[in-house]
Design a protein around this nucleic acid. Structure first.
Lengths: 145, 145
DNA sequence: CAGTATCCTTAGGGATACTG
DNA sequence: CAGTATCCCTAAGGATACTG
């Protein structure tokens, strides 16, 4: 379907149109793996819950949620109540991504073990590498400092 | 094995010690997927070949290769000749990473198709989504401009 | 509650010149 | 050939205050 490209066309490499780059900007920044994982565990999670579970600023959280929504990995549902309630959930694509992220986490975990690097215990609890403690997982991060 | 942590310990979330972060900094930046893939295809690839296949500056390429080596994903072999010859190859861990990157690429490719986004044809050739043309793949990137 | 709006800092990457 | 060494720039993220 119109795929008659010359070698010269190919040489004009557009990195931003490569699937690697798409993947990186879609879910491989500092916070998106954590955000997606939080949604996968806590269905219908609300805005404030993120900020209690992750040391992320509201600005950055908001930006990331908007991007994830635009990329169709999550759905934002607004309930017209007072005070407002907004819930976030995964799309089918978002669930696929979570499966891949799971693989990445597992690889990273084993690799860090192999290299004897310290591993954050909270993530381990969330991913089944450590006995869970509800009291901690419900609100792990203190806004202190 | 000394894993007696209090809830307060857990609350002190160290994002840099989480496997997600480890994965991101190990092989999820702008160029590492391309570099690793280039090595996986062209065993014993040399420094200059990267710069001909990717629009990457020598500085950034060098930095990335050093990091990949430090993280034990690639091996750097120096042959004491004149002029010097240095070859890069994958470690077993590097090959594992390439397998995961393959999954990410495939997901990204399908997702971009689904969303009707333009996909760079050169990457498609390298990943088997498009009929390969040797002449282009051997030196796709022109240093012009 | 669920966010914006501002302002600020830093790390990652790009361009270019140079070297053993 | 296989890199350093410089200098520069932008995008991502952080801190904080404010709002419907």
């Amino acid at each position: 379907m119109g795929d008659t490209q010359t070698p010269e066309d190919y040489r004009n490499f557009q990195i931003d149109q490569d699937p690697y780059s798409y993947v990186l900007r879609t879910f491989c920044n500092r916070w998106k793996p954590f955000i997606l994982h939080a949604i996968s565990v806590d269905k219908n999670i609300r805005f404030n819950r993120f900020t209690k579970q992750l040391p992320i600023s509201e600005k950055v959280l908001s930006e990331n949620l908007r991007e994830l929504e635009a990329d169709e990995l999550i759905i934002r549902t607004v309930y017209p109540e007072v005070p407002p309630r907004v819930e976030y959930s995964l799309t089918p694509q978002g669930r696929e991504v979570c499966r891949m992220l799971r693989m990445l986490y597992d690889w990273g975990w084993h690799e860090m073990k192999r290299r004897r690097l310290p591993i954050d215990p909270l993530g381990e609890m969330w991913h089944g590498y450590r006995k869970p403690e509800e009291s901690v997982m419900n609100e792990p991060y203190k806004k202190s400092r």
